[in-house]
């Protein structure tokens, strides 16, 4: 399912004295099966964009296409359930949204809300719990007896059980330790590939964006500042740094090294392995490839 934002504008509390322009003239495409990272610092508009992806917000100008459904500014939209069922959002700290008595009931809540039968919802819960790397015996427990990391996985299972075609992740690894971070990111990447999901990752982490995304979209002050593949985006790291954004540590290190030597080292490296090769051949006097 493709999602497309076409020249959208969004104003919070429009037509009131508190009106605030959050997005202006934003256009972007999320083709079916792609992995897109949206980056920008606090207040850049990335969370506002996120809420347009399943029509939690409707643009004050422009059009949003979600699959075959068109959501246009100034029109009353009815029956958005079908859209929201297909686009699952994992919000920041999703474990704060757990509320049911048992893990199973909590996971079943989403699908049943969309009209799935209890039997089917339970079947999906038992699949989803394993997809997030937990065992089925957890289904009977209270979500509040679990560790923070397990709670987060249960909350993610709740979104997966809706069997969405697009999954939107808002800082999914915030607060996790390095191992937990890697496990969660690998889990989403696996699902992305196995189920051919479209994945949208909203993050501060340039490392994750560089490692997993096909395309990176940089938001700045409510507009799209730049978009491109990771190597395109990071070929001009200084512009990002000047905007107060991070770049992956590999990119930052290469930049510092090039500044120290007063020379470019050829290609833009995105992994420590690539950088090691480039630096080694550079120092040994070989031609940097």
């Amino acid at each position: 399912m493709d999602i497309s934002l076409q020249n959208i504008e969004y104003r919070y509390q429009a037509d009131t004295p508190f009106e605030r322009l959050a997005l202006s003239d934003v256009s972007l495409d999320i083709p079916s099966g792609s992995y897109i990272a949206i980056i920008g610092h606090t207040g850049s508009g990335k969370s506002t964009v996120l809420q347009h992806l399943n029509a939690l917000l409707k643009p004050t100008k422009g059009t949003v296409l979600i699959g075959s459904r068109e959501i246009r500014a100034g029109r009353k939209e009815k029956n958005l359930k079908a859209v929201r069922e297909k686009v699952g959002i994992v919000f920041q700290f999703p474990e704060h949204q757990l509320f049911e008595e048992t893990v199973e009931k909590d996971i079943c809540f989403g699908p049943m809300n969309f009209g799935v039968s209890e039997t089917e919802a339970k079947r999906r819960a038992s699949v989803a719990i394993e997809q997030v790397g937990l065992t089925k015996d957890i289904l009977e427990k209270s979500p509040f007896d679990l560790s923070g990391g397990q709670m987060r996985r249960v909350a993610i299972a709740g979104v997966l059980a809706m069997e969405p075609q697009v999954i939107v992740l808002d800082e999914p690894t915030a607060g996790l330790d390095p191992r937990g971070r890697k496990e969660i990111m690998d889990l989403f990447y696996q699902l992305h590939q196995d189920k051919n999901l479209s994945t949208v990752l909203v993050t501060h982490s340039m490392e994750d964006a560089a490692a997993y995304a096909d395309e990176i979209i940089i938001m700045h002050q409510g507009s799209v500042f730049e978009k491109g593949t990771p190597s395109e985006i990071f070929s001009a790291p200084q512009a990002l740094i000047d905007m107060g954004l991070d770049v992956p540590e590999v990119v930052r290190f290469q930049l510092k090294l090039e500044q120290a030597f007063g020379r470019k080292m050829g290609k833009v490296c995105l992994t420590a392995e690539e950088l090691t090769d480039v630096v080694a051949s550079f120092l040994k006097g070989g031609n940097p490839s």
């Binding site: 390095p178 540590e249 590999v250 420590a272 630096v279 040994k284």
Partner: peptide, 23 residues
């Protein structure tokens, strides 16, 4: 450290990889 669920700072990791290539 990785076995303990942690990580190694980037300069330490890169330094080690460079040393392995003979720098």
């Amino acid at each position: 450290l990785i076995g303990l669920g942690l990580d190694i700072p980037f300069p330490v990791k890169l330094g080690k990889m460079l040393r392995e290539t003979g720098i």
